[in-house]
Design a protein around this nucleic acid. Structure first.
Lengths: 228, 228
DNA sequence: TTTCATTATATGGTATGCCAGAAACCAGCG
DNA sequence: CGCTGGTTTCTGGCATACCATATAATGAAA
């Protein structure tokens, strides 16, 4: 039955200035190299309100949200500062990530379909024998997508949400992470094992592998990333 | 050498109205029985600003933070509503809790001192042979403190923070959870096993026990708590 | 009486102005 | 020349007024 009815799609929902300012600020901060020694971490309300073309009110509401999220710190009458996470805090984030993603892997073995799990091959096999040296950037992206995919397969929105929030912070120091090729190679091996565990519905093993894999990253960051 | 110097203590730091309003609102919402069928979920900005004796500006900034935290939803020009979590969301929270606390248990076996772990006995042994029937309330408190203690022992602030945030939500449906005595009894047995695993520094086992313990709660809530 | 269009009102959204505290600046004194 | 005390300026905190839209109230027409 062909219905010649009007194709109505959700009217352009113009969000409030507050939420748009929030998004813009978050993106702007994310794009900053805040861990550079000479990075300017201070924000100026009035200057920002001019740049964004909004008044201070919605801007301040957006800042309040970012403060709640831990991206900025508002010091009364002293200034608004982008928060630089300490190394210890970054390590804690990776630890939490490990806990959540390993749980996600376990859940995935219970709820994901075979087809969904099979889809992971696309994010792993590509780099089978490929020259990782040249495709480091691509690999890095695929790597992120692989982990995101596992979390998605768990069906747990909350894990995805929290994990995303952490990623906002961790992403900022990504540029300071030395991704040696050797580590990448070993990482791919890990990934394959993880996929296999998922395919065989071995929840216990999938959980362990993911946890150990992420804790390796923790160990690596602990050892090679200098922050404070 | 006796110094007759002025005993100075950090000056009473009066927080901003925004943060005090935030705390007050959060506490007020926490105290509400928001899952009662006839609960009023709508908040009125102007009314609140009168009740708190502040203008709408700091109040709205506090609300923006609560929205970020997921406690309220602000519908433009329609109202501000306290968020009722769905059962599925509650279950996800418990799942995340399981992931985090089990990781905390693992960490605790690595970083906590013997003395610290021994301190857990105070939160478990009390209810050894005691008549749980009568002390249900106390048990419930001790139960919460036990889990909080494990998280504290992990030394991971972030786990504590996230877990606290979840608790804010889960607490609200606590009153709807039927705590049968049988469940409490089995819970105590679990706790003892967990303490033992921690004492023997068996990280693998501690993690598993905590996870399974919390997933039992998940299962229980799934089965017996009616929300939607 | 019901329905629908119009009007009124309520409610959150935003802009603006003033205030208080902190930092920067400056002048005078030792 | 350096230190101290006061003054100016800068910056975020807060209150208030007005705006736009969603919803309720109203009344006229069917």
């Amino acid at each position: 039955m062909v219905k010649a009815q009007l194709e109505v799609q959700p009217i352009e929902e113009v969000q409030s200035l507050k939420s748009r300012t929030y998004e813009a600020l978050k993106a702007a901060i994310g794009a900053m190299k805040i861990y550079d020694a000479n990075a300017e971490l201070r924000l100026d309300e009035r200057a920002l309100s001019l740049q964004f073309g909004v008044s201070r009110t919605p801007l301040r509401e957006a800042l309040a949200q970012l403060e709640q999220e831990g991206l900025v710190r508002i010091a009364p009458r002293r200034g608004i500062f982008i928060v630089r996470k300490t190394k210890a805090e970054i390590l804690e984030m990776i630890t939490v990530w490990a806990a959540l993603e390993s749980m996600a892997a376990r859940l995935a073995t219970e709820v994901a379909s075979d087809a969904e799990i099979a889809g992971l091959h696309g994010l792993v096999d590509t780099f089978d024998s490929a020259d990782i040296e040249v495709h480091m950037g691509e690999y890095s992206d695929a790597n992120i997508r692989f982990h995101a995919a596992i979390i998605a397969l768990s069906g747990c929105k909350l894990i995805a949400e929290i994990t995303n929030g952490l990623f906002t912070h961790v992403r900022a120091i990504r540029q300071r992470t030395i991704f040696e090729q050797d580590r990448a190679r070993r990482s791919i091996v890990d990934h394959k094992e993880i996929v296999e565990a998922l395919e065989t519905r071995n929840g216990e093993r999938a959980e362990r592998l993911v946890r150990e894999h992420t804790l390796k990253l923790r160990q690596h960051v602990d050892q090679f990333v200098q922050l404070d």
